[in-house]
Design a protein around this nucleic acid. Structure first.
Lengths: 345, 345
DNA sequence: CTGAAAGCGCTTACAG
DNA sequence: CTGAAAGCGCTTACAG
């Protein structure tokens, strides 16, 4: 691990010169010959600027922290992947921060910044967190961008176009001929879910249909919560012919619960989910999904965070491009008028 | 962001004292009263030791890098999760490094260390990499622990007890009554797969069975490669009554391909896979898997890396506890003598 | 029991 | 065109 000093010695110049030349500092007027000598010396010694020294001097690490509730959720992984990739493109490294400690210890996120470990953080908050909890997460002064969740005023925010996702789901089901459709949403407090529901319901109305309250369940985005939603939705009366699930993980639970109740998908009931996940192709039947632009979301988050870090600019972005994309698989089909559940009505 | 100096000023002592007290330095004999004054001042100012300054002084960052081929593979995510958790427990933070850049740019991993960004790296290499490629990955002098893959001499290694995984698969299938079993393995160069196959084959022999060469396919661990394995294995003659797949991702492909060929699982054929994955419960039929101790693997990797960093101790570990654990689901069942494929023999 | 001083490896006004 | 010097915020011998 050669130092600047050693490079300078080898090149026969001052450390100042080496620093300037190697960093392409503006208005550095060094002879081409000098530049070359410096470059050669650096290469010869395998010189790498020490990160800590640089960070100390510049008060900037070029590292961003990514705070995720957990790694089990494929949605978060896609986000993490996109963030890491875009960060790398923009010259930043990615530090992984688990939310577990962060939720029990409200000081954890600010500390990352106060210790100078990261220049800022991108946080995907858990769905249930209150606005107050979110505010206390970053302690106000931390450069933070909240992704896909509600957020404090001082922080940036990057959101999916959830309503558009809901709309695509409604249009697909309607186009297939479904007229009695249910919606399995996130928890009552979830703004993501509320927006998806809104887009879904509005689209249905625009098409001449409607989404009555008893066709709505708000159990949450997790697998077991999807199962609970099925219980709600099939509780009494005529079952719907299709269920739109606000999250692909919940949809896994929906599929399993439906099967265990003897409801055949898609013969008796169609199922569509918002968000794509690797597992969706391997369920039985393979799940029709609406892929949301998580890659673009992650990239937008990185860009927003840089704006906050470098210019103090807080921005709120809705990522609407690329548009939500339908993956039509085998869990959706035109409604079957002879489906057992409806046949005996 | 208060500095040591400010804390010292507020407490009315020297910065030396503050540093010593706050770090609980050995043989620091400060009055209890002084200690308290210092602590109070630190709290009052919200003091956090600057990470860069500390790293510069100590030549140690307490950050480890995790190098993963990609984030799409749930196995790697489990590993990442475990590493992050154990690292946190041991006082280390986790920097995520993508292998994409690392494979095209052989200098990338050593650079992380040479720049002083991380103290060492844990790398999960791609399955196909040659030993030479692995060696050049770390350039020899980088503290590195290779996980679940072959590795250069100077680096530590932490391996799963792959043979045990193969054995559990063989025993389960044999116990169910299967006598004609196939094995869908990783690529020919994969040491992981070779060990699983070895354990599998040896167990079968111990039980009085055998695994003839034509019942072995070596197409790889990926989904599509599992599909290719099915093609191999069903190519001609009597099909086996069960397939053990060396990797759960490939097993997804096996399931899909079997279905598309009209082979019913588990009626016509049983399928079992090594490694557990969230998706395995949601396939149809739900996939019987053998969960390998990835959590313990990740933790062992962190511990091995610390040994390398702090004591220069290179260690090779095989993680055999907890033992591979069978998740019996619906893709395995006793062989059906009337299965169509065999009935017409 | 406590402090002054050097130094980790950089960057950047300032001076020439 | 180039260098000497200060300083980023710590830690740790060394001295008293």
């Amino acid at each position: 691990m050669a130092t600047l000093r050693e490079v300078a010695a080898l090149a026969g110049v001052s450390t100042s010169m080496v620093s300037r030349v190697l960093n392409d500092a503006p208005d550095t007027r060094a002879t081409d010959e000098t530049r070359q000598r410096i470059r050669d010396a650096a290469v010869q010694l395998g010189y790498r600027a020490n990160f800590a020294a640089r960070a100390l001097k510049n008060s900037r690490t070029h590292v961003i922290g990514v705070v995720l509730p957990d790694l089990a959720n494929p949605i978060y992984i896609d986000l993490l992947d996109a963030v890491e990739e875009e960060a790398a493109r923009q010259g930043y490294l990615t530090l992984l921060a688990r939310a577990e400690g962060l939720l029990t210890n409200p000081d954890a996120i600010p500390r990352l910044v106060h210790e100078g470990r990261v220049d800022g953080v991108i946080v995907q908050a858990s769905d249930g967190l209150s606005p107050d909890a979110l505010t206390s997460l970053t302690g106000g002064s931390t450069p933070a961008v909240f992704v896909n969740s509600s957020h404090p005023r001082e922080s940036g925010s990057v959101l999916l176009d959830d309503a558009a996702g809901g709309r695509v789901a409604a249009e697909h089901l309607w186009g297939l001929g479904h007229r009695d459709i249910a919606f399995a949403g996130g928890l009552p407090g979830s703004e993501n879910s509320a927006r998806r529901l809104e887009g879904f319901s509005a689209a249905l109305q625009g098409l001449g249909g409607s989404l009555p309250e008893h066709r709505i369940s708000r159990r949450g985005f997790a697998v077991e919560q999807g199962a609970a939603a099925v219980a709600d939705l099939l509780a009494a009366g005529i079952p719907p012919t299709a269920i739109a699930v606000a999250n692909v993980n919940a949809a896994f639970g929906v599929l399993t619960e439906l099967r265990s109740r003897g409801v055949a998908v898609p013969d008796d009931m169609s199922v569509i989910a918002i968000h794509e996940a690797p597992g969706a192709q391997h369920t039985w039947p393979p799940l029709t999904t609406i892929e949301m632009p998580l890659g673009a979301l992650g990239a937008a988050a990185v860009t927003a965070l840089r704006g906050l870090i470098e210019a103090g600019t807080v921005s709120d972005t809705v990522v609407s491009s690329p548009a939500p994309r339908l993956h039509e698989r085998e869990s959706t089909r035109p409604p079957n008028p002879h489906a057992p559940a409806r046949a005996n009505v």
